[in-house]
Amino acid sequence: MPEEIIWRWGPLSRRINPVTGYRLAWATVLTLCVVMTSLSLGKVILTPWQVLDILASAETGGVHFIVEQLRLPRTLMAWLVGAALAISGLILQSIVRNPLASPDLLGVTSGASAAAVFYLAFFSMTLGHTWLPLAAMAGAGLAAAAIYLLAWQEGASPLRLVLVGVGISALLAAVTTFLLVFSPLSTTLSAYVWLAGSVYGATWQETQTLSLWLLVQIPLLVFLARQVVVQQLDDSPAQGIGVRVQWLRAGLLFASVALAGTAVAWAGGIAFVGLIAPHIAKKLVLPGFAGQAMMSALVGGLLVLIADLIGRTLFLPADLPAGIFVAALGTPFFLYLLIKQRH
């Protein structure tokens, strides 16, 4: 196993693993390639050189509009949503120490879905779709808070969180179905696309708002990064080395819910990324939260990016929700990694 590089500068000190750094660099290069591909492909096919020309010039009409106003915001949003869900899932899997945990578990998707469908059924006629992300975010937050409070018994144990989470999610799924059944067909259709998870028609304004919401969460993540591994110890040894376990767990849960809630609010029920991306990332880099988080973000971003690319190019003129292809892409790749590891 390669040596870690220890970096010290004044009061700062860090341990850095060169292999992790190397692989992260590769994943970043791959991401940039896929971004270029995504900007090039569509009804109008361009070469990467043309795309670079377009991005560099200040003109706005024709192909410029297609690349800069249609493809670029959508590409960025797909990446951001995937990255946020992946980090959220990574945090959650480490908290509940269950490899099957995904942001769905804390009611994020089910809460957001119920709220979104409720909004589409009762408010979209009068208010339009502008407030849909906020409604979904509120739903995600409320569901997660309810689960956390109901699971509390002299502290929130991971097992109770899982059990209460499954229960509340099932309840909210029932509410969603109920609302869908009693809504007019037009609502049902737009709700269905939302539930499947899509970044269709993303605008710059939406992408900017999403980036802002995610940006404010980064300091919290940076602050919590070194704490993730210590809380993976059992409660008693963790307390023994001086970790305030309940505070830390609450902080991490909050970060996880905030990330997933934001992503789901703009892209709908695409949370499967949060289950699969961290697993793929953990196979690619060595243990250590900072490295795993960055790799998860890259893998999650790539997954949604490629899924959306397939959804909007392979079935032209139809534009299919990215959520469909996230599962179709992520699962085989994950199985491949598992099988490769077995030999």
Binding site: M1, S94, V229, Q232, L233, D234, S236, P237, K282, P287
Partner: peptide, 9 residues
Amino acid sequence: TPVAPEGIS
């Protein structure tokens, strides 16, 4: 009988 984080050296 403490449990170590997954995969840790």
